[in-house]
Computed example of a mutant assay.
Amino acid sequence: MKDYLPAIIGMALATQLPRLIPALTGTKKIRSRYMSRFLSSIPLAALGTLIIPGIFSVGGSMIIGLLGGLVSLILAFKGVNIMLNIVISSLIVSFLIYFI
């Protein structure tokens, strides 16, 4: 347990500090267009780093994950609701895992 405690504390700080600093320093709007675009793209980059490894390792085959990711990407470009996109992509990946 002692080995995990510094890692847990470090992860908690890394998660909470970016949220606390703006709240504690004030609520001024960011005037720099570049900085505003940079900060708004951070959640997308973090989401990508969580999703991409899963696409390559799902079902024990990279092809199944790539097909599921491609279906999800096509549905997203067509403007399908995100929950419906998740359900359809998950069903297709489950179908591929079960039958392939």
Rank of each mutant, 00 (worst) to 15 (best):
Y98D: 08
G48K: 09
L73N: 09
M83N: 06
M83D: 04
A46S: 13
K28P: 00
G69Y: 00
Y4R: 07
A45G: 09
A76L: 11
S57I: 13
P43Y: 08
I9A: 07
L84M: 13
I30Q: 02
I100A: 05
K2N: 09
S72R: 02
I52R: 01
F95T: 12
P18T: 10
F77S: 08
S89I: 03
P18I: 10
F95M: 13
M83Q: 07
A12E: 05
F77C: 11
P22D: 14
R31V: 01
K28C: 01
G54E: 15
T27C: 00
T15V: 12
G48S: 10
S72W: 03
L47D: 03
L13M: 13
I9C: 02
L17P: 03
S90Y: 08
I52N: 01
L39D: 06
Y4F: 08
Y4K: 10
L47F: 09
N85V: 06
L70G: 10
V87C: 05
G65F: 01
F56I: 09
K29V: 14
L84T: 15
L70N: 04
A23W: 08
S40G: 02
I82Y: 11
M83V: 13
L70W: 07
A76C: 09
L91T: 05
K2R: 08
L44P: 00
I64L: 12
P53A: 02
M83Y: 11
R19H: 06
A7N: 05
I100W: 06
L13R: 03
G26Q: 02
S57R: 11
G10E: 11
I30E: 13
M1L: 03
A46M: 15
L67G: 04
T49I: 09
L66A: 11
L13Q: 05
D3Y: 03
T25Q: 12
I64M: 08
